[in-house]
């Protein structure tokens, strides 16, 4: 059974007014447990709305969101519990920090869950370590930290609830390349260690290509495809028609193919590309 499932999920803003707009249009998705899903799509393709429906912040206009097969808008369902199980990190989450120390801010979520002191302490320290915050930072005021550190505190604040599904809306927006890699690598390690399901919204094809095990492509309020990165990037033409970029390495290999050099379609990581090239140059490749 998929951990998160949507059935004919639809959300329409300002129904009945001239500004009426359908942001999510009859989406049917099945997200299996332990997947690292990259979500790509243009601004206004419905990413944020979809995410907010998945943890019960927005009520669908029609359709269902099922968490472990349970409709989260069922009369018996407790939405607050759903939010603890589906953690959502918003864009620029550092603007939500409010406590006097980093420690207390990370502890806000676990405290709301009603955990005991000892468990909270364990979670705060563990997640702080997971996002690479040094021990001595925990007692500092969050406003005294650098932008990248604040971002990591905010992500840790959601991680500390130990959700089964962790959704992140562009966690690397506005960070320098080093900070981006750091956050994404830590996320990947966290994913491997806890085995939780991660949904990562990103504008960077390189990032999703490198870290995701599945890709969800959204276009004009619809889910266009949900497949492995290899299969998604193989449909390069459709992606480009939707105005989405391909990873640079994929574009390079497409150019090579156009020149008649037989390379496979779905090269989307630099590592794989380099191996192919090396094999070809050394003449170990039998294809040509």
């Amino acid at each position: 059974m998929p951990i998160l499932e949507t059935k004919d999920l639809t959300y329409t803003y300002s129904i009945g007014s001239p500004f009426e707009k359908t942001a999510v249009d009859h989406m049917n998705l099945q997200i299996e447990e332990g997947e690292f899903v990259g979500i790509i799509g243009h601004t206004g393709s419905g990413k944020s709305t979809l995410m907010q429906m998945m943890n019960g912040l927005l009520k669908p206009t029609s359709g269902q969101v099922l968490l472990d097969g349970q409709d989260i808008w069922d009369k018996k369902a407790d939405r607050r519990q759903v939010r603890f199980r589906v953690g959502l990190v918003f864009q620029y989450p550092e603007y939500q920090l409010f406590e006097q120390t980093v420690y207390e801010d990370i502890a806000f979520g676990p405290k709301n869950m009603g955990l005991d002191e000892k468990e909270i302490d364990r979670r705060v320290r563990e997640t702080a370590e997971a996002v690479g915050l040094r021990e001595e930072l925990l007692q500092q005021a969050p406003y005294a930290l650098s932008g990248g550190q604040k971002r990591r505190v905010a992500i840790a604040g959601v991680m500390a609830m130990e959700p089964n599904v962790l959704i992140l809306d562009e966690p690397t927006a506005g960070l320098d390349p080093k900070g981006r890699v750091k956050i994404l690598t830590q996320l990947q390690q966290y994913h491997k260690r806890t085995g939780c399901t991660i949904l990562l919204v990103s504008h960077s094809m390189e990032d999703v290509a490198r870290y995701a095990s599945k890709l969800l492509v959204l276009c004009q309020a619809k889910a266009v495809c949900y497949d492995t990165p290899a299969n998604v990037f193989a449909q390069s033409q459709q992606l480009e028609e939707m105005g989405l970029d391909l990873p640079q390495i994929t574009r390079v290999f497409h150019k090579l193919r156009e020149r008649g050099i037989a390379f496979p379609e779905e090269v989307y990581t630099v590592k794989f590309g380099a191996e192919l090239l090396k094999a070809r140059l050394e003449g170990r490749d039998s294809a040509c």
Binding site: L57, R83, G109, V158, M161
Partner: peptide, 10 residues
């Protein structure tokens, strides 16, 4: 936005 973010943290 802030309300939504804090609600997401319970």
């Amino acid at each position: 936005k802030i309300i939504a973010a804090q609600k997401a943290r319970g």
